[in-house]
């Protein structure tokens, strides 16, 4: 069955602390019309990763706002945007959330 996020662009960023992820996530959601697929820890000291889905222009705008909002709270471990993800990407994305 078609997943909720089929074909939508992916935006992912990892920060040093989960609190900073909440602040960045909130800034991103206020900036553009995106939906958050999940927030998960990334086992790098106390970091966390946020996965954003939506239109490509929304995801790009949201990522910039998120990185800008998280600047005072923590360093950015990694960030990237995938414009048009492949077919079975949702399985990989959902696998590690809340693990």
């Amino acid at each position: 069955m078609a997943g909720k996020y089929d074909g939508q662009a992916i935006g992912m960023f990892e920060l040093d602390s989960l609190g900073a992820c909440y602040v960045a996530l909130d800034a991103a959601a206020k900036t553009a019309n995106i939906s958050v697929q999940g927030v998960e820890r990334n086992r790098l000291k106390s970091g966390a990763c946020v996965k954003i889905r939506g239109g490509i222009s929304d995801v790009k705008a949201a990522m910039e706002a998120a990185i800008l909002a998280a600047a005072p709270y923590g360093k950015v471990t990694a960030q990237n945007v995938i414009a048009s993800p492949g077919e079975g990407i949702d399985v990989a994305m959902e696998m590690t959330i809340n693990k």
Binding site: S17, G19, A20, Y22, V36, V39
Partner: peptide
Amino acid sequence: FMSAVISAPSDELRRIV
């Protein structure tokens, strides 16, 4: 380590938290 106040949180953050 970190403290923040988020006013008027968005619906996405409410769902996550």
